[in-house]
Structure formats: C-alpha cells, structure tokens
Design a binder for these strands. Structure first.
Length: 279
DNA sequence: ATTGAGACCTGTCGGC
DNA sequence: TGCCGACAGGTCTCAA
C-alpha cells in the first residue's frame, strides 16, 4: 500500500463496531498512501490529503494482501510460509469473496488488500490532522513497549498508586501500548510476578522503580521481541506456543519449577499463571 | 477518578 | 448428528 494510490475501494459491509465514515470509499479513491505505520494496536495510513486512515483489527480481524505479480509474491512469502488454507483462500478471493471480507482496497501497485473480520470488532476511521491529534484513545496511548522511552522508570511512574492488578494494568493501553491478553500473561510469567498483585507494588510511594518494575519491563520487551520474530510471515496466533497462555493444567515451563498453570478470570478476561514461581 | 462488569458479534469446540 | 453453553486475540460505556 505504501506509495500506492487507491484505485478502487469496495465497502461490502459498512457496519463494523463503529459505522464507516461518510462517503468512505469516495474519499479514499485517488489518494496516495504516503506512509503506513503502527501505534499500539492501531494501523495508520497517512494519505496525500493529510487525512489519516486509522484501522484496528479488533479480535478477529486480519488483512490479506494479494498482488498481481504472483511470482514476486511467492518469492517474497516463502521465508514466512503461508499456511495451506490461507493460500487456498487467496486463490479463491478473486472469484468468491469471503462473507467476512468487509473492505477491499485495489491499489495502483497491483495489490489487492482485503480486510476480513468475522466478529466485526475492528474499526476504520478517516481523520483530519486535528481529529487525529484529539482521538480519544490514540492520543492517550502509553509508550511503545519496544522503544527506549519505555523503561522501568516509565512503567513505575504509570503504575504508581494504582489499586488495580498488575494484569489489568498491562492491558491498560494508557500505561503501555499494544500489549494484549496473551502477552500480558506471558510477560508476568517471565518476570515471576503474580498477575493478581496490585500494580502499585512495582513502584515506591514516590514513583521510583523497584526491582519488579525492571524485571517486568525487560520481560515485556523480551516476549514481544520473540513474538515478532516468530510471527514474521506466519500465522502466529494459531502456530504460537506460549509459556502459560491457554495452558491450564500443564507443567510450568520455568526450569526447575514444579508448579502447574492455573487459569483465573480477572476483569472479565482469562489470566494464566504459575502460582509457584509467580509471586 | 478509578475500577470492574457487561455489551458489541460471530465462530468454534466440548459435552450430552 | 445435533443442540447448547462456554469461550475467544479488544475496546467502549456505564454505574458503583
């Protein structure tokens, strides 16, 4: 998409979690994507008109990219290796779109980009610079977890005085941007911290980082870095093997730990942890 | 002001 | 085989 123009925009189902912007397709066609970036779980396409196309995948959303130059695509994708069913659905797309393909972008580069989202929790917004800057969620996002700005001091400051649990704090996008339910559990396990402890325990009353803040910050960076490396080009969600997520009743993977993974509900979400090595 | 619960929507899976 | 409830990766709103 980057550097390419929207030649055709097909909205096949305009009612995602939020309704589509007025005249969404008409406003996109003819515009060029100046840059394609990410902030937290949001994707941003900066457009030639200075507007931004803001996209979120929700729970079940995904983008499928298909190019006209098939040979180029095959070579490019070999390293990651698409799963067999995804290749099959790619072949089908041209003739019989999936009923959950809600938006289709046809780009001047020859790429066709389909946004598919069975649960329709995803969103697409088209925002002026002013409305982008004032976006109620985006403007409040915390630091990028893999940036230098995210360190033990920043995490401790954000958690200072918080009565909520560590798990809930990690899911709060204002504290750190982009962690979801899986990697919140994973990071707490790596850090050896119980998801049920109060978030405030990682900071001194003055907001300075305790050792737990250092361990947690390092653990977040570690699990995300590993996940990105593993996920590049593959179906990460289905293929991934997690330390604790979705492993209730199994042995704790920490060397020498005799614990068994438990699942508990916190703030309406499943949390997985080892009650022996996470304190 | 913070916090947790419920809502949004569809698909899948396990149990009976 | 078929039906039913539980559960799923994320926000967002509302009421306590």
């Amino acid at each position: 998409m980057q550097g390419a123009r929207f030649d055709e925009v097909e909205v096949r189902r305009p009612d995602l979690r939020a309704p589509f912007p007025e005249r969404f397709a008409a406003r996109l066609v003819g515009q060029t994507v100046r840059a394609l970036t990410r902030r937290g779980k949001y994707l941003l396409a900066a457009l030639s008109s200075d507007e931004t196309l803001l996209m979120h995948l929700g729970m079940s959303g995904w983008f499928h990219v298909e190019r006209l130059e098939r040979r180029v695509e095959r070579r490019g994708e070999r390293r990651g290796g698409l799963s067999a069913d995804r290749q099959a659905s790619a072949g089908l797309a041209a003739t019989a779109p999936d009923p959950h393909d809600h938006v289709i972008f046809r780009m001047s580069s020859g790429a066709t980009v389909r946004f598919n989202d069975p649960r329709r929790f995803g969103t697409m917004e088209l925002l002026s610079p002013a409305r982008l800057a004032a976006h109620p969620t985006l403007s409040l996002l915390g630091p990028e977890p893999l940036s230098e700005a995210f360190d033990a001091a920043a995490l401790a400051r954000a958690c200072r005085g918080k009565k909520t649990s560590l798990k809930a704090a990690l899911l709060d996008q204002r504290i750190v941007a982009g962690l979801g339910n899986i990697y919140a559990s994973e990071a707490l396990h790596v850090a050896g911290l119980s998801p049920r402890r109060r978030a405030a325990i990682i900071a001194t009353p003055a907001g300075a980082p305790r050792d737990a803040a250092r361990r947690l910050t390092a653990a977040i960076k570690q699990v995300l870095t590993e996940a990105v490396e593993r996920a590049a080009g593959s179906d990460e969600y289905r293929d991934a093997r997690f330390r604790v997520y979705d492993r209730e009743g199994q042995r704790c993977p920490r060397r020498g730990c005799p614990g068994t993974i438990v699942r508990r509900t916190q703030a309406g979400r499943s949390t997985f942890s080892c009650p022996v090595c996470q304190r």
